[in-house]
């Protein structure tokens, strides 16, 4: 916390209090929309399989980004280390998935 925040505690408090739930509700609605698109595409069927797979993955990744960024505050300041470690965690997880898709059966 910086010095001027301490100096002007009340104002800060007030500013923070004004941060309402709207932002999070928007994220929620977005998540719902993305989820519905994903389920609807599959439920409807008949769509090109490759396209469906790509679409589903994009929907999932978008949703995950939004939740990590807003609900888990990764987009806020002071989250450099968490971001670095999460990125590398996903990177290792990703290599494992690539392994599973291409190098287990031949």
């Amino acid at each position: 916390m910086s010095v001027d925040q301490h100096a002007d505690h009340d104002v800060i408090k007030h500013r923070h209090r004004s941060e309402g739930p709207q932002k999070h509700i928007i994220v929620f609605i977005f998540s719902i929309i993305l989820t519905v698109i994903a389920f609807a595409t599959v439920a409807a069927g008949g769509v090109n399989a490759t396209f469906t797979v790509i679409l589903l993955l994009i929907m999932a990744i978008l949703q995950v980004f939004m939740q990590l960024g807003y609900w888990m505050h990764l987009k806020d300041k002071g989250h450099l280390m968490p971001i670095l470690f999460m990125i590398f965690g996903f990177f290792v997880a990703g290599t494992a998935v690539i392994m599973a898709l291409y190098w287990v059966w031949w």
């Binding site: 290792v92 290599t95 494992a96 392994m99 599973a100 190098w103 287990v104 059966w105």
Partner: peptide, 12 residues
Amino acid sequence: GSPVLWQHIFWI
């Protein structure tokens, strides 16, 4: 099951 999968996980 797949024995190769174990090798991958072990060496990852």
